[in-house]
Design a protein around this nucleic acid. Structure first.
Length: 716
DNA sequence: GGACTCTTGGTTTTT
DNA sequence: CCAAGAGTCC
């Protein structure tokens, strides 16, 4: 034990002064404003170790991380420091799921609730829209869910929303919101937002329970505090209400989740919320070369809505970051592979290189190029595996075993594999449920009472129910054992026996293997807990630093990671910043922060890249380089080949910065029709149309929304 | 009930 | 271009 104490003390003495201050802060609230690469993770780990060394019981410590991966990493680090186990380290969502199961009665929930993923949410929304007699054509399930998600993130119930708005649209939204919540309730299910909202409400309304949890978690740490939404803020606040031992770390410049309700105001107002708060700044960067840091700093300086912060490093000089221009995305991918190859020949390991992109769909071309160049790579997309049909089917069976009220899962697999229970039968079962007020599971168990059903159908349904009950009786077995039996008895195994289903079968096998790994690692493994864990996986969870491979991921997934070499593709208008974020300065600044996050992942080598043309929906379109590149000077601009588009009789420079309106006389370029002048402009609320007289003689009326019209101007 | 074809539209980003 | 959902036909 003495050895342990020494190692922690020694380890802490190796920290810089501000790091040490943060790590050894014990009582009361603290805000650590930690710039990129400032050793924040080290600080958090050391603080946990220090608290325990000071005699705090590990059970009293709760550390909330942004991803499961980050939690796992922290656990590993603590183990390395030989810190006694027992503290809770998890994400907000896992914490909420856990506490809501533990206090299900208080929360008015079934303890075996299902967690709905986005596909389940969509299915539930379709049912809800139908129940409200609204057409899914006019009220898109996706848009509805997004709207409702916003309300939930702000802890606003349908009743509260109804009080705020009185217009036609919101009246409909409120109805759908209420119907959707009823749908979730009937399924004994929660969606991602519910997990947070329900816990926040519970902490707000149940003071007895709140006190109990305040007592349990004496010390609370929240990482990436800049990306907490209102629910998460309220959960943290509620948990720390009595002791205020709230230690948060974050960087306003790295807030990139505003679109899902994250409120940068939470971190900016921390000192007001916790007046006793101690503020510690970690501004020294230990990760990147001065050149990389300079680019990052120049970029982020362009944001207006930020607190001034000085980034500095004592690291020695490295190489200048590069900017590569390619003709199209295929050439860009080749350039990327070439760059990786050269680094590798220079002695860099493949696992030290990462490629970031804005949207997942961009990975395919990059993969191809890497495969062609025989460069090993891994795609960081943890949720992908669980989206495969056969895996989703398995999950639906398992969820049904745990939670028979889960109709969405039931509908998914009652005829999967095919057992002759089609839409007609299903419809009759559900209308029986509606007619009698009995839940669907009861109806299934009493098919004889369903008059509308034929004898053959009754037998088939009866056999299905028998299978499910048979499996339910095995729930005491190990998780992997239940999975195996489910695979077998459901008929899925037989259905996937053929050669053409080899891959699907292998996926299920892999799932079963991962389940046995799960039960070895877990202290109290259970099917419900296993399902919860896989429902809450994130893309970042798939990152394996041991794999000797180049990592490909979205800029969002890159958060919290670092690599010696980073390549960012598609630094173009429409991607970075994304078209959907062009509406407001607020969104634009978040896009800039996103690029900032990407750049600051790089330790030594950084390369930004854009292509002059890119295929969108199968059509190659001319692009404009990102306006953010304007914020950067001193980049070594490497042009691969000059464009052959000689239609430029004069030197034309695309000007995306004042592209709000296309007034008559405006010079434009269209990817297929070429150069032209706007002769007429008709604005009609999002469906703006322009009539363009093209140089080719053609005269076209185009929807601004769809036509990739490029606004041109003469050089000043 | 199930397989097949046609239509539509386009999710940034993720728990 | 491609995936998902709706519609159609056996």
């Amino acid at each position: 034990m003495q050895k342990r104490d020494n190692s922690i003390v020694m380890s802490i003495s190796s920290l810089t002064e501000p790091q040490r201050q943060a790590a050894t802060h014990v009582d009361g609230p603290a805000l650590v404003l930690a710039g990129p690469g400032s050793g924040k993770t080290r600080v958090i780990t050391h603080r946990v170790a220090y608290l325990i060394e000071q005699g705090i019981h590990p059970f009293g410590i709760l550390a909330i991380t942004f991803t499961n991966k980050a939690a796992e990493e922290m656990r590993n680090r603590l183990r390395t420091l030989q810190v006694p186990r027992g503290c809770t380290i998890c994400t907000f969502h896992s914490l909420a799921a856990r506490l809501l199961r533990e206090f299900a009665a208080e929360a008015g929930l079934a303890p075996n609730f299902s967690i709905f993923d986005s596909a389940d949410q969509k299915a539930a929304m379709r049912v809800s829209l139908k129940a409200c007699e609204l057409d899914a054509q006019n009220f898109s399930p996706g848009a509805m869910l997004a709207r409702i998600s916003n309300f939930k993130n702000n802890i606003e119930t349908p009743e509260q929303v109804a009080e705020q708005y009185n217009d036609f649209y919101h009246k409909k939204v409120v109805r759908v919101y209420a119907a959707y919540q009823k749908q979730l309730h009937d399924n004994a299910a929660l969606d991602f937002d519910d997990l947070l909202m329900k816990l926040a409400l519970l902490l707000r309304d149940n003071s007895e329970l709140r006190n109990k949890l305040n007592e349990r978690y004496r010390y609370i740490l929240v990482d990436e505090y800049q990306d907490t939404n209102h629910s998460q803020y309220q959960i943290a606040r509620g948990l720390a209400l009595s002791h205020e031992n709230m230690f948060v770390t974050g960087d306003p410049d790295q807030s990139i989740y505003g679109w899902r309700g994250a409120d940068i105001g939470n971190i900016l107002a921390f000192e007001e919320d916790y007046p006793r708060a101690r503020v510690i700044r970690l501004e020294e960067n230990f990760r990147s070369t001065p050149q990389v840091l300079d680019v990052a700093d120049q970029l982020i300086q362009a944001n207006q809505q930020r607190k001034e912060k000085k980034l500095f490093t004592s690291r020695k000089d490295g190489t200048a970051p590069r900017l590569i221009e390619s003709d199209n995305e295929y050439e860009e991918a080749r350039e990327m592979a070439e760059w990786v190859k050269q680094l590798h020949q220079g002695g860099m390991e493949y696992r030290e290189v990462a490629v970031f992109y804005r949207v997942n769909s961009m990975s395919r071309v990059l993969e191809e190029a890497l495969r062609k160049a025989h460069i090993p790579y891994q795609i960081i997309r943890g949720v992908e595996f669980f989206k495969r049909k056969e895996i989703k089917d398995m999950i639906a069976y398992l969820r049904l075993l745990v939670n028979p009220a889960d109709q969405i899962s039931l509908k998914r697999i009652i005829n999967q594999p095919s057992r002759g229970i089609g839409n007609t039968t299903l419809g009759r079962l559900f209308s029986q449920s509606e007619k009698t007020g009995r839940d669907i599971w009861y109806v299934l168990n009493h098919v004889d009472e369903v008059g509308a059903l034929g004898g053959a159908a009754k037998t088939r349904v009866g056999k299905f129910v028998e299978t499910i009950i048979n499996l339910q009786n095995r729930l005491e077995d190990s998780v992997s054992e239940v999975l195996k039996k489910t695979y077998e008895l459901s008929g899925m195994q037989a259905a996937l026996a053929g050669e053409q289903n080899e891959e699907s079968a292998a996926n299920v096998e892999e799932m079963i293997n991962s389940a046995s790994q799960y039960e070895q690692e877990q202290e109290n493994p259970s099917l419900a807990d296993y399902l919860q864990q896989i429902a809450l996986v994130s893309d970042a969870d798939a990152y394996d630093e041991q794999a000797g491979a180049v990592s490909l991921m979205t800029l969002h997934a890159a958060k919290g990671l670092e690599f010696p070499a980073v390549f960012i593709v598609g630094v173009e208008e429409g991607l970075i910043p994304h078209t959907r974020s062009a509406d407001s300065d607020k969104e634009l600044e978040e896009e800039r922060r996103l690029l900032f996050v990407g750049i600051t992942r790089a330790e030594e080598k950084l390369c930004l890249s854009y292509a002059r043309n890119r295929t969108v929906h199968g059509v190659s379109m001319a692009t404009i380089r990102s306006q953010f590149l304007r914020n950067l000077s001193g980049l070594d601009f490497q042009t691969m080949e000059t464009s052959e588009d000689s239609e430029d009789d004069f030197d034309i420079e695309p000007d995306p910065y004042e592209s709000k309106g296309f007034s008559p006389g405006q010079l434009v370029r269209h990817p297929t029709f070429g150069l032209g002048r706007v002769s007429k402009y008709v604005g009609s609320h999002g469906d703006d149309r322009v009539t363009v007289q093209f140089n080719s003689g053609a005269r076209k009326t185009l929807f601004l929304k769809y036509a990739k019209l490029e606004k041109l101007s003469f050089p000043r």
